[in-house]
Design a protein around this nucleic acid. Structure first.
Lengths: 346, 346
DNA sequence: AATAGCACTCTAAGTGTTAGAGTGCTAATC
DNA sequence: GATTAGCACTCTAACACTTAGAGTGCTATT
């Protein structure tokens, strides 16, 4: 009985330490925590508990006479076991929604505004991964001749995305031939995801040996020449300025390192691509990150869906000392709104 | 005779002051300048000249016992009268060209890499304005039906840009009708710039009252519903991290202000749009900028062309203390390369 | 006209000092 | 046995003070 009580108190003190530190950015001492508990527990007791927490590796001492700071492990424990869902205020929601709604028309603009919304609402950097076309479902294709043996292909997905490509095609096809190939592809590819089209066609090519073969062959050739399926890796980023307001960046070198980590899109890209596979929120705290450059920071990611299919991810990135609760709810909210916005766009 | 000699010496001393300051970022004293002239002039003399230069408003004193620093007016004089064209080294050129070449395929990627190239080569922030479609020349249009009364329009410019738009159109048109409208537009709009298409059609509409009228009307209606001509304002930015290495940003608040200025794309956009109208290099030094947020910095811009038509601009932005000579030649070079790259893309 | 010399100014860096926040330990208390 | 008060100890951040040195402007000299 007693044991349980002690443990739960330890938890609630640890919780107080994390929240106080996240709020103030200064190492938190026993006195401050005591006050948080309206002095129902004395500083001395708290010091004892703190010593235990330190032994467990959840908090640490910057130096002898300083307060305590959560470790990466501490944040992990906090996020996994203590964090309570936090609702956005009406205000916050309306700011976010306004920003999303106001981005009319092209998708670029939507993405840009989403990253801004994330950074504004969370106070850390906002990152948005462009919807991966590969995940989208084929709906319609049009092929037509441009001048001198150039063919233009326009492909439309069920979610309304359009991608086009102009290509050189060695043999000249008449408009009629192209129209027939187009009709063929449109009837054949319905419901196939863009990522699978190539393998789908080559598979067909092996099966089929009859009159359709020539169509298939030409269609496959055209599509393989086109750049329609080239990887569309694109990240949108915002919040470089807002991140600078955090005290962890008073040293300009730290700020610079952070910005460099942000500019190296390769690592962020593979991180987001990986997290996209896991439904919902993913959290990477400090040293948990496999990429060196970002081991001082935390990244929280969240996938987003169009018509139920995961097509991309958004993320917030900042110091390990961030408001995880808020960040999580903001990302969840924005992810949903983004999905809706993209559905309407199509 | 004597007079000329004095004046030219004044100039060369001023030149030395600017270059020394640009290089070292610390106020430059008479001794340092004397050494630059291999002590052929004594510090005392230089002090006298400096006093004259200060009176002219070209340099200033941060405080009594500090060296001199060029003023905005000083930089202006330097840029207008003293600056000698500076050639890029083979190395620099190859780094730039490599970065441009490696950006395969989509234009997004090219723009992103160009901004990176600018920042890498100049050591300040790089900014790129997306090619303005309005300036491009109509080449080809395709219209086709998607499901339930949605029409898809794809427009291609002579420089190979493609823009598309899916729109709701109240009255249903058969494929045949659409084809005829398409053919009509293709024959009618050849050589017209995208920016003029709308006014071109309405003008035609007023002139024409015969059998073509119905075509014209429908075509104009379709195009006006589409988002094809929506403003395509988009900026690409790079170099936030690299700018932090300059000593003017050791104070994080300054860095933050700079980043905020960069993130406020509206002002940059109108600046670039304006400068685009003037061929070649444009330089805005400090307080010369009409926008408050950027009055502590300098911006150098340069338009770029596709097939001889100006379609966009690139820029470098940083502290007023920047290597103007280098920045100018980098921008000129990249502007030309960018034009070529975009011509090949189409 | 150019320069050497000198008194003067201001900053940046280093040194000491101190207040205060925080700790850990021990002994007293509930 | 858990909690707490008390106390000696530690470390930092802030402040005052000093000083070296870089730079100036002025005046007298070449």
């Amino acid at each position: 009985m007693k044991k349980v009580d002690t443990e739960s108190r330890q938890k609630s003190i640890f919780n107080a330490i994390v929240e106080s530190y996240v709020d103030s950015a200064t190492p938190v001492g026993s006195r401050a925590i005591a006050q948080r508990f309206r002095n129902t527990i004395s500083p001395a007791t708290i010091r004892n508990v703190m010593a235990d927490l330190e032994e467990k590796g959840l908090i640490m001492h910057p130096h002898t006479s300083a307060g305590r700071v959560p470790t990466d492990k501490g944040y992990r424990f906090y996020v996994d076991s203590l964090l309570e869902p936090k609702h956005l205020t009406k205000e916050e929601e309306s700011i976010i929604n306004k920003l999303i709604r106001q981005s009319t028309g092209d998708i670029e603009h939507v993405m840009q505004n989403i990253s801004k919304a994330i950074s504004l609402a969370t106070n850390v950097a906002g990152i948005v991964l462009m919807p991966r076309l590969k995940r989208s479902i084929f709906k319609h294709i049009e092929l037509f001749n441009m001048d001198n043996s150039k063919i233009m292909a326009v492909i439309v997905t069920t979610s309304g995305f359009v991608k086009n490509s102009i290509m050189d095609f060695e043999e000249h096809l008449t408009g009629q031939e192209l129209t027939r190939i187009t009709e063929f592809l449109n009837s054949e590819l319905e419901g196939v995801s863009l990522g699978e089209i190539k393998s789908y066609l080559t598979r067909k090519l092996l099966e089929e040996r009859d009159s359709f073969y020539i169509f298939l062959k030409r269609a496959a050739d055209i599509l393989s020449v086109s750049s329609l399926f080239r990887a569309d890796d694109h990240l949108y980023f915002d919040g470089a300025a807002c991140i600078m307001s955090h005290p962890e960046f008073t040293d300009i070198r730290k700020a610079r390192l952070f910005l460099m980590a942000c500019e190296d899109k390769k690592e962020l890209l593979s991180l987001l691509n990986e997290d996209m596979e896991h439904e919902g929120i993913n959290i990477h705290i400090g040293k948990e990150n496999i990429y060196n450059d970002i081991q001082d920071y935390s990244i929280v990611t969240c996938n987003y869906n169009i018509n139920g299919v995961t097509v991309g991810a958004i993320a917030a990135m900042g110091p390990t000392r961030m408001e995880y609760g808020k960040v999580i709810s903001v990302l969840k909210h924005i992810s949903a709104e983004l999905g809706k916005a993209l559905e309407n766009l199509g």
